Every structure is written in structure tokens, then in C-alpha cells.
Simulated assay, not measured.
Amino acid sequence: MFATPGTAPRTEGAETGLNAGVVLGGATRISEGTARAIESSVRAVAPAVTVVRVSVSEADHLWLARAYDADGANVPLPQQHEEAVARWIAVDQPQRDWQLQHDLDLATGHLTVAGAQTTAGY
């Protein structure tokens, strides 16, 4: 179900590359194919997840994706999901500043710098 870490998921029919994202009020929409693949894979193991936060560990450059529910509570994901989902997002949006954490809203596919979604409380 998952691509090997460091590779992109299969996104037949989806736009890819720098022009795939549409900027909306500070948020970028990731490509539709990638958004659907991520939502499907995350919800298969953690149905309550609404937001995925992506970060890169400075020490070992490990890509991580932490999941949160609508109340902002952490929802544990298997490590293979964390790494694969984070890399899928990074491959879809290489122009982003990945020294900053980013949040992906699973319902909309919008990617924002972490903390920009203050109403969710996380």
C-alpha cells in the first residue's frame, strides 16, 4: 500500500510538480492524487485523524508525520506510515521550506505552516 520512503505514491491523473499546488490564503493545496492517497492510507489505520503535521528531524533527517484528531489530540500512526506520508507530502511540495513544520488538512488537502491553523488548538 505504501511507497518506499523517499518515493512518491502512485497518483494517476494527478498534477505534479511546482504548479500542482494552488495557494489559497497562505495554504497550498497538494495535488489531488497525493491528497487522496494520503487520506486513504492514514484513515485506514487511524480513522479519526483530521490533520497530519510534517517535520524533518535535524539530527538524522528523518521525515515524520504526526497525526491529530479534530480536538488536537495526537493519534499514533505506525512508523512506516509516518515516514511514507511525510515523504509523499514533501515530494509533492518540494518548494516548501521544510525547516518549518507543516500541517496537512486531510479534508481539504490544504498544506499550511504549522501554527497557522490556530482555531484547531494544536
Rank of each mutant, 00 (worst) to 15 (best):
residue 62 L to A: 11
residue 1 M to N: 05
residue 48 A to G: 08
residue 93 Q to N: 12
residue 6 G to V: 01
residue 111 L to M: 07
residue 116 A to G: 09
residue 118 T to Y: 13
residue 96 R to S: 08
residue 41 S to E: 12
residue 79 Q to K: 15
residue 93 Q to I: 00
residue 110 H to G: 06
residue 8 A to C: 05
residue 106 L to K: 02
residue 94 P to C: 00
residue 115 G to E: 05
residue 43 R to C: 08
residue 81 H to V: 15
residue 41 S to M: 08
residue 100 L to R: 14
residue 94 P to H: 01
residue 61 H to A: 13
residue 33 G to R: 00
residue 41 S to Y: 02
residue 44 A to C: 04
residue 12 E to F: 14
residue 24 L to R: 14
residue 30 I to S: 04
residue 97 D to F: 06
residue 4 T to D: 09
residue 73 A to I: 15
residue 53 R to W: 03
residue 114 A to G: 00
residue 58 E to H: 14
residue 118 T to E: 13
residue 5 P to V: 11
residue 73 A to V: 11
residue 35 A to N: 05
residue 101 Q to L: 15
residue 58 E to P: 10
residue 1 M to Y: 02
residue 88 W to H: 08
residue 64 L to G: 06
residue 20 A to P: 03
residue 62 L to V: 12
residue 56 V to T: 13
residue 118 T to Q: 14
residue 35 A to M: 07
residue 50 T to I: 12
residue 45 V to E: 04
residue 78 P to D: 11
residue 32 E to A: 13
residue 27 A to W: 04
residue 24 L to I: 14
residue 35 A to L: 13
residue 52 V to S: 09
residue 115 G to D: 00
residue 81 H to R: 09
residue 60 D to R: 10
residue 53 R to S: 10
residue 71 D to I: 07
residue 8 A to K: 04
residue 47 P to E: 00
residue 22 V to S: 01
residue 102 H to D: 08
residue 59 A to T: 12
residue 102 H to W: 15
residue 102 H to C: 11
residue 30 I to M: 11
residue 62 L to S: 14
residue 81 H to C: 15
residue 11 T to E: 10
residue 9 P to F: 02
residue 30 I to K: 08
residue 57 S to W: 06
residue 90 A to Q: 11
residue 6 G to W: 02
residue 112 T to P: 00
residue 90 A to P: 01
residue 47 P to N: 08
residue 56 V to C: 06
residue 100 L to W: 14
residue 101 Q to E: 14
residue 86 A to C: 03
residue 102 H to P: 12
